[in-house]
């Protein structure tokens, strides 16, 4: 229907300068926003997955004990962990690693042995995960100085915030599509009303509804496609030049963008916008034409 065999169908509707530009502009603006909504959705989705996934697989046991009992307690804790279901590996951090962790706060030349620094044990869970409550009970019985931190306390709100953000992003994307449909419908209705004489002449000389509608549908679909393409291109450029961070400093804000195959998703915006315009114009045209003789 769009790859028209008959260019004449296009010409039967007079060109309309101002509304055409408004449609182009609105489509471009909506596509620009859609690119950001997509970037937000995909980035927060990535974040939720990473926080939920990686952090859930690790836990830390902190052992605070008098210096002379410390290594005994560490060994006791490691023994317990060896027999704990769901633990893949567990190892005490070396002095060097502990020092590296503390370096940002105390400087690199800190002498660990002069301070009552707790020992840390890194626990990596297997796919099934472990039972933190059970582990805590066993640790409390045998290693009084051990505290299990399975990160869930601060992980849970972050994961749910990221998931909520993702939901908001997708909702925004859908709303943008709906607004685009509403905007095209209004513009198409205005065009149909402004061209009432054209439509009545065409009906009089034997044009079918499909022929008349085609002229309007083509016009609005192509306009939306062009506008949305421009908006998408601008949106992608803007996302591309968002200041990013390296892996270690990447936070939510610097991670806002597309990664890998996600760069393809904004390319879907213009065709989807054109599809929305096509359907909206077709419905508007059918509704209007059916009221005419």
């Amino acid at each position: 229907m769009l790859a028209s065999r008959d260019r004449h169908a296009d010409r039967v509707v007079p060109p309309s300068g101002f509304t055409a530009q408004l449609t182009l502009f609105a489509a471009a603006a909506m596509a620009f926003l859609a690119v950001f909504a997509l970037a937000l959705s995909l980035a927060s989705g990535r974040l939720a997955a990473r926080w939920g996934d990686e952090l859930a697989r690790s836990a830390t046991i902190r052992i605070t004990a008098p210096q002379d009992q410390q290594s005994a307690q560490v060994e006791a804790a490691l023994r317990i962990l060896e027999t704990t279901k769901g633990v893949r590996t567990a190892r005490a951090l070396t002095d060097a690693e502990q020092q590296a962790l503390l370096a940002p706060w105390f400087g690199a030349d800190l002498a660990l042995d002069t301070l009552p620094v707790p020992r840390l044990i890194e626990v990596i869970e297997d796919a099934d995960g472990m039972d933190p409550a059970g582990l805590r009970l066993r640790l409390a019985a045998e290693v009084p100085g051990a505290v299990l931190d399975d990160h869930s306390r601060w992980r849970a709100p972050l994961v749910s915030a990221a998931s909520r953000l993702r939901t908001l992003g997708w909702t925004s994307t859908l709303l943008i599509a709906a607004v685009m449909a509403a905007m095209v419908t209004l513009a198409a209705n205005a065009a149909l009303a402004a061209n009432a004489q054209v439509i009545s002449v065409l009906r009089l000389v034997g044009a079918t509804d499909a022929y008349i509608a085609q002229a309007f549908i083509r016009r609005f679909t192509i306009r939306t496609l062009i506008g949305a393409s421009a908006g998408m291109a601008l949106g992608m450029v803007a996302v591309l030049f968002m200041p990013g961070g390296n892996d270690e400093t990447a936070t939510f804000l610097t991670g806002l963008g597309f990664q890998g195959w996600h760069w393809i998703t904004p390319l879907l915006v213009p065709p989807l916008a054109a599809l929305v315009a096509f359907l909206a114009t077709r419905m508007a045209a059918r509704r209007t034409l059916e009221t005419l003789t």
Partner: peptide, 8 residues
């Protein structure tokens, strides 16, 4: 010529 155009 319009009637010719609209009727293909």
């Amino acid at each position: 010529a319009l009637p010719l155009h609209v009727s293909d």
